[in-house]
Amino acid sequence: MSDQSKSIHQFKVKLLNGIDKKLSDYKNKVLLLVNIASGCGFAPQLKELQALRDELGTDQFEVLAFPSNDFGRQEPLEGTAISTFCEVNHGVKFPVFEKIMVRGEHANPLYRFLNQSSTPRWNFHKYLVNKDGEVVDYFLPFTKPLSSKVKKKINRLMNT
Rank of each mutant, 00 (worst) to 15 (best):
D70P: 00
P95W: 08
V88Y: 12
G79W: 10
E98Q: 15
G57E: 06
D59A: 10
L64M: 03
T58K: 04
G57K: 09
A65V: 02
N89E: 14
F97H: 10
F71W: 01
S68G: 09
S83Q: 14
E87V: 14
R73S: 11
C86L: 06
F61T: 04
H90E: 04
E98V: 13
P95E: 06
R53S: 13
F97R: 06
F71G: 00
Q60E: 13
K93I: 06
N89M: 11
F85Q: 09
D70Y: 05
P67H: 00
F61I: 02
V92C: 04
S83P: 04
E75T: 07
L56A: 10
P67C: 01
L56S: 03
V63Q: 00
G57R: 07
P95M: 02
N89F: 07
T84E: 15
N69H: 11
F97N: 09
D59L: 05
E98K: 11
E98G: 12
T84L: 13
L64W: 01
R73N: 14
P67M: 03
P67V: 07
A65Y: 00
T80Q: 15
A65L: 03
V96Q: 02
F66G: 00
F61G: 00
D70E: 12
L77R: 09
L77M: 09
A65I: 03
T58E: 09
D70Q: 04
K93E: 09
I82R: 06
R53D: 05
C86H: 06
D54S: 04
G91P: 10
F61S: 04
D70W: 05
R53H: 12
G79A: 14
E78V: 13
L56G: 04
P67Y: 04
E98A: 07
F94T: 09
I82F: 01
R53N: 13
R53Q: 14
F94N: 07
L56T: 10
F61R: 01
Q74G: 02
V96G: 00
N69E: 11
E62D: 12
L77V: 03
G72E: 12
F85V: 05
L77Y: 02
F71P: 00
F85W: 08
A65P: 02
L52V: 06
F71D: 11
F94C: 06
P95K: 04
L56K: 12
S83E: 15
E87Q: 15
N69R: 07
C86E: 09
G57S: 08
E78N: 14
V96L: 10
T80E: 15
Q74V: 05
L64F: 02
S68A: 14
F94V: 04
F94D: 05
N69M: 02
G57L: 05
